[in-house]
Amino acid sequence: MTAEQAGMFTRCPGCQAVYELRARLLAEAAGVVRCGSCGKTFNSLSELFEHRPDQSDEALRGEGMPPLLEHVELRQAELPVAFEPVPDEIETDDLFTEPTPPGGDSIVRRHFWPALSAVLLVLLLIQLWALWQTPGSPIARWLGSSVQPDAALDPNQTVQIVSRDMHPHPSLDDAVIVSTSLRNQAETAIPFPVIEFRFYDASQQVLGVRRVTPEEYIQDREALERGLAAGRIMPLVLEFVIGTSDPAGFQMRFH
Rank of each mutant, 00 (worst) to 15 (best):
T92F: 15
D94V: 15
D94P: 00
D94R: 13
L95K: 07
L95M: 14
F96N: 10
T97R: 13
T97Q: 14
E98S: 14
E98K: 13
P99M: 10
P101H: 15
P102D: 12
G103K: 09
G103D: 04
G103F: 06
G103R: 05
G104I: 08
G104L: 15
S106G: 15
I107M: 12
I107E: 14
I107A: 15
R109C: 04
H111T: 13
F112P: 02
F112L: 14
W113P: 01
P114Q: 12
A115Q: 11
A115G: 11
A115W: 09
L116A: 15
L116V: 11
S117R: 15
A118I: 07
L120W: 13
L124F: 10
L124M: 12
L124I: 10
L125K: 08
Q127N: 13
Q127A: 11
L128G: 03
L128P: 01
L128V: 08
L131Q: 13
Q133M: 05
T134Q: 07
G136D: 00
I139E: 06
A140S: 08
A140F: 00
A140M: 00
A140G: 02
R141I: 02
R141H: 03
W142F: 01
W142S: 08
L143W: 03
G144T: 05
S145K: 06
S145N: 09
S145P: 01
S145V: 02
V147S: 06
Q148F: 00
Q148D: 01
P149Q: 02
P149Y: 01
A151D: 00
A151P: 00
A152V: 04
A152R: 07
L153E: 00
D154S: 04
N156W: 08
N156E: 00
T158H: 09
V159Y: 02
Q160G: 03
I161F: 01
V162K: 03
V162A: 05
V162E: 05
R164A: 11
M166H: 06
M166T: 06
M166Y: 06
P168S: 13
P168I: 05
H169T: 04
H169L: 04
H169G: 02
P170F: 10
S171Y: 12
S171L: 15
L172E: 08
L172F: 14
